[in-house]
Write a protein that binds this DNA or RNA. Structure first.
Lengths: 133, 133
DNA sequence: TCTAAATTTGTAATCATTACAAAAATAAAT
DNA sequence: ATTTATTTTTGTAATGATTACAAATTTAGA
C-alpha cells in the first residue's frame, strides 16, 4: 500500500512524520501505545517529539484511519484497522490478538431503538502459547 | 441486602466508609467514577478522603465484589455487579446502560485453546430517549 | 485501660495527556 | 529567487487521575 497516497486520500498531508507513524501502525499491527510508537521511531527520526505522536494519532482518528482500544485501564492503544473487531490480551505475555465477532449476536435485544456508533470487545486471559509452557 | 454482612462474607472488615461506598455503588448502580463517589459521599462523611475511595475500591476489586469498566479512555468507572455484562454509553446524555450478551456468541472461533478470564463489551451511540428528542 | 493492628487521611510524587507558543518546514505570491 | 503566509513539528509547562507514603485516627485485643 502507498501510505502517502492513503493519507492524502483521507485529507491528511503526508508529512515525513505522519508517513512514518502510519507505516509503523500499519506494518506492525501490534496495537502500540504512544510510548511504544515514540521509542520505536525516535531512532530513525531523532528530532521526533511525543507531542507529534499525540497530534498525529489524534488527526488519524479524526480522519477515520485509526482507532483506539483501552483494554487496560491505564494505557490507550492505537490500531490502523478500523473495522469492527475485538481484542484479546494475554495477561501473561502481554500480547494482543485480534478477534472477530459478529455484532449481531451481541446485545441486540437490549438495544432496540438505540443508535449504535461503535463497539469494543475486550477479552483477557492466557494465550495458547503461555498455557502450554 | 445486608451490606456489612456481604463485606464480611468476602473477607472485608465493614468499616463505616466501606459500607457507605459499597452502599452507594450497589444502590445507585450508576457506574460512577471515583470523583462521583467522592462528591456524593463527602456531604454525609465530611472527613472522607479520595484516597479512601481509591483504597476501598481497590480492596473491593481484590476481593471480587466490584468490577471496573473503561468505556471512555480517560475515566475508570466502578460497578457492584460482577457478572458478565456489557455497557452502552450514550454519547449525548452520558447515561450508561447495562446490556446482556451471550459470550458464547463472541469470538469463540479465534479463541480455541485460550483461557478466558474476563470479557468486556462496550457500545457507544445514542440512547432511545436522546434520539426521540 | 493500655497496646498493637488496621484503617483513614492529607500531601507529595508520578505518569499520561493536553495546551500552547516558538521554531522549523512547506507552500504560495510577488 | 525572495518574501510572506500557512502548516507542521517541537519543547515545555499545565492539567488531572492515580499512586505512594507517612502521620493521625479508629478499632480490636490483652
Amino acid at each position: 500500500m502507498n501510505i502517502a497516497q492513503h493519507l492524502s486520500t483521507h485529507d491528511i498531508k503526508p508529512s515525513y512524520q505522519r508517513i512514518k507513524i502510519y507505516e509503523y501502525l500499519y506494518e506492525k499491527m501490534n496495537h502500540p501505545t504512544v510510548d511504544v510508537i515514540y521509542k520505536n521511531l525516535v531512532g530513525e527520526i531523532p528530532t521526533l517529539s511525543k507531542s507529534t505522536v499525540y497530534n498525529t494519532l489524534k488527526l488519524f482518528i479524526d480522519k477515520g484511519i485509526t482507532s483506539t482500544l483501552t483494554i487496560e485501564d491505564n494505557e490507550v492503544r492505537y490500531d490502523a484497522a478500523i473495522d469492527s473487531h475485538g481484542h484479546f490480551k494475554c495477561t501473561s505475555c502481554g500480547a494482543i490478538f485480534d478477534i472477530k465477532y459478529d455484532f449481531k449476536d451481541v446485545a441486540m435485544n437490549k438495544l432496540k431503538g438505540f443508535e449504535v456508533k461503535e463497539t469494543q470487545v475486550h477479552v483477557k486471559g492466557k494465550c495458547n502459547q503461555c498455557l502450554t509452557k
